[in-house]
């Protein structure tokens, strides 16, 4: 199982789209930095689709807060701190960073 870490806004590039194509059920996706803009507007639909495919969703709370992004926009998404980020890397065999 893989932890995907998205650092890029889905409105700026295609990292989230490519992540979706390679992710498997049981993987997790962490939104970090501008990646938290995946919670905004139409991008949230892509997150819902990932969740429906069995990918667990997380976002770094401080990056949401910094950008004024509402993490409750996507149900089932967990907000975490850096300690939680480390726990996620421990719980998955590998991580893949998208930026």
């Amino acid at each position: 199982m893989t932890l995907h870490i998205l650092f890029e806004s889905p409105f700026a590039g295609r990292a989230l789209e490519e992540c979706r194509r390679v992710a498997s059920a049981g993987d997790a996706l962490l939104l970090a930095g501008d990646g938290v803009y995946a919670l905004a507007g139409t991008a949230a639909d892509a997150l819902q689709a990932l969740r429906a495919d069995g990918v667990a969703l997380f976002a770094l709370a401080e990056d949401c807060a910094a950008r004024g992004v509402e993490s409750a926009a996507v149900p089932g998404l967990g907000t975490i701190d850096y300690g939680g980020f480390i726990e996620l890397t421990l719980a998955h065999e590998r991580s893949v960073s998208w930026f």
Partner: peptide, 14 residues
């Protein structure tokens, strides 16, 4: 094939 590549390597460096 992409899903398999990402799921089978020990390290992934983007």
């Amino acid at each position: 094939t992409l899903r398999e590549l990402f799921a089978t390597h020990d390290r992934v460096i983007t």
